[in-house]
Amino acid sequence: PVPAPCNPSHFMKGAIIQLATGELKRVEDLQTQDFVRSAEVSGGLKIDSSMVVDIRASQQRPGLVSLHFNVGEQQSKVTIDVPPEHPFFVFGQGWSSCSPERTAQLYGLACHHLQVGDVCVSITLQQQLQPQQQKQPQ
């Protein structure tokens, strides 16, 4: 069999995913709550809500799609270039990609069509809070 290095096999239908709770699920059976729970019990990782604000063809890398996100409470602007078949997990909706047809061909994973306004699950490092400064009496 020819390996397909560009297609990470964790998105293949039937791939076994371990949640932070230790539970094993197939990638196609994952629910929003699985990501939320996993982030809660895993130290150091935090779930962010990342809203898709723009989708366009990548200028730098032909064949890829530039996805523009507003990330987290800060609404930080982040752009990533991905192949059109790359699936994202949309809150309350599930797997979605820019090309559900290609995702189905390459991974066998059923996807919705990713659109502007969709809110995707993303992760970031939990903010390491500085020790509270003691309030010195003046």
Binding site: I17, I123, L125
Partner: peptide, 19 residues
């Protein structure tokens, strides 16, 4: 059978610091 960690499925979107 390979087992993948849940966090490999979702993008790591670190806000870029602009200062």
């Amino acid at each position: 059978v390979p087992v993948f960690p849940w966090h490999s499925l979702v993008p790591f979107l670190a806000p870029t610091q602009s200062d």
